[in-house]
Nucleic acid binder design. Structure first.
Lengths: 232, 232
DNA sequence: CTTGCAGGATTGTTCAACAACTCAGTACCG
DNA sequence: CGGTACTGAGTTGTTGAACAATCCTGCAAG
């Protein structure tokens, strides 16, 4: 039995399911969820004592969770003052879109090397949005929209890029909450996504990249616009 | 004095210097340093008790520092087993170079929009390497080489991309330690860097991008080669 | 050679205590 | 009245100890 049996690799893949996570990580997961869904709006202060009491975890464990989320930029930590849900300013939006441009256009540029099923995954996300829109499920449309972009960067097949994109998207969600009308914010993009997905399917990567660039310009401008409205 | 005085912005920039950092962060800085310089080689187990005693910090504080470094992928955390200095495998190398390709070629692509002094900064790093090489200061050559690439991604002027690149580079240093001969690993790249820097200065971004791509292919291959030698 | 089972060592988590610091309020002074 | 200095309450930063949960080593049994 020198050679590895086939079932060994199989089980090795399930390893992660079995990894119990620490309390701190689960607390971080929960807080992350609450933050990106808007239940904990930007600027909210999270006191160690009350949060710890609410979740029934010790201050130490909670602090570990906070560290995690600070590293993800969802919280900011001010020394001796506490942690707060991050408040994004216009510069952050600009930088996030700059980062997206890098990631998403690169992904398309390297698209010709990508697995065809990864392109199918992109298409699938657009289809989900197209189905949710007529039913006015704007939250689902928004989610599918985000997943569309994650699928685009997924073309690279890079765990690290996927991870980076995950964080960028989580951070961007902090900003999306300023958009009062979900419909106006999400609906127009379905068509753009469809166009890009079709181009990718047809293998027209250069044009797809151009469209993506313009998509990002438009979305950034709309978000910055909404920001200026709030600022006054 | 409705308008902000000039010195206000100036001081705001110094804010970070004044921010005392927590013990956990300083511990993390120290450990990071030791890891990337190779004093703590990949695979090393860091026990909470002995590390805490050595640094005179409590276990709780040390755990906060560990969380930070785990998030940066410099340490891996195995539940109930402890933390270890990360051991990169060949897949990691491939993925790190994939990520670098995305970041560095994009930076050059968006180069025409960049500040000219950012291009000068790239040139400066090559000059440092060129000065250190004849004196056989290979560690300095290696450092300047890395800073050259950071300066390239710096073209984007994006704090987030800079941060991502910082982490990629730190992670990559884990792999560089397998290179037994620093000279053979660093010297040949000075010339390639010079070529790219000159192209950037002349504004020939398309050719610079092509060169960067080939640079990364070469470096990746060399590193993977060294890996295969170790593996036997 | 494998399996099962202590026993010791390490990590996961909580708790309590105290130091260090921030902030709001208040008294003081010109 | 405007500004300054100070005080005290409340929060965070850090430590140390304690106990539960888990892993690892070594040994005995089959």
């Amino acid at each position: 039995m020198a050679a590895t049996d086939p079932w060994v690799d199989l089980l090795a893949g399930d390893r992660s399911l079995l990894d119990r996570t620490s309390t701190a990580e689960r607390v971080a997961d929960l807080l992350r969820q609450r933050i990106i869904e808007g239940a904990l709006p930007p600027g909210t202060r999270l006191s160690e004592e009350s949060a710890g009491r609410a979740l029934s975890v010790s201050r130490n464990t909670l602090r570990e969770a906070f560290r995690l989320l600070v590293h993800e930029r969802l919280l900011v930590h001010e020394f001796h003052r506490g942690v707060f849900v991050r408040v994004l300013d216009a510069d952050d939006i600009v930088d996030l879109y700059r980062t997206r441009r890098v990631l998403e256009t690169s992904a398309i540029r390297y698209g010709p090397l990508a697995d065809t099923e990864r392109i199918a995954a992109i298409d699938a996300e657009v289809a989900i949005a197209e189905e949710a829109a007529p039913q006015e499920r704007w939250v689902d449309v928004g989610t599918a929209n985000i997943r569309f972009h994650q699928a685009v960067t997924g073309l690279l097949g890079s765990p690290r890029v996927d991870d980076i994109m995950r964080r960028v998207v989580a951070e961007l969600r902090l900003a999306f909450h300023v958009m009062a009308r979900p419909r106006e914010f999400h609906e127009p993009y379905i068509e753009l996504n469809r166009g890009i997905a079709d181009l990718l399917t047809k293998g027209e990567f250069t044009e797809a990249e151009r469209r993506m660039e313009s998509y990002l310009d438009i979305a950034e401008a709309q978000l910055l616009d909404a920001y200026r409205q709030i600022a006054r």
